[in-house]
Amino acid sequence: MRIPCPYCGLRDAHEFAYLGDATVKRPDPAAPGAEDAFHDYVYLRDNPAGAHKELWYHGSGCRSWVVVARDTRTHAIAGAELAREVTP
């Protein structure tokens, strides 16, 4: 599996560390219902069989966080963008 790092180009997945689902968003700890929101954020996942947006860290490369679009059934990668450029 090779990941198209937006900065470094096509690189082996071995150079990256995996964090997980890129669609979960850290809730506001001061908002009402923050306890439930944090439970959902920390623990619950859609875990889809199919298209998945996920965070990889290019630790052996440019050290950027990358959001990769990958199919969990085939491992086919549709694209990747720098996490800081992804609008949540």
């Binding site: 689902d21 619950l44 996942r45 875990n47 969990t72």
Partner: peptide, 18 residues
Amino acid sequence: GSTSRLTAKLDMRLPIES
């Protein structure tokens, strides 16, 4: 490993990744 696929039909999210 298919647990989330089934519970998705019930709109139930789980603390599980496959």
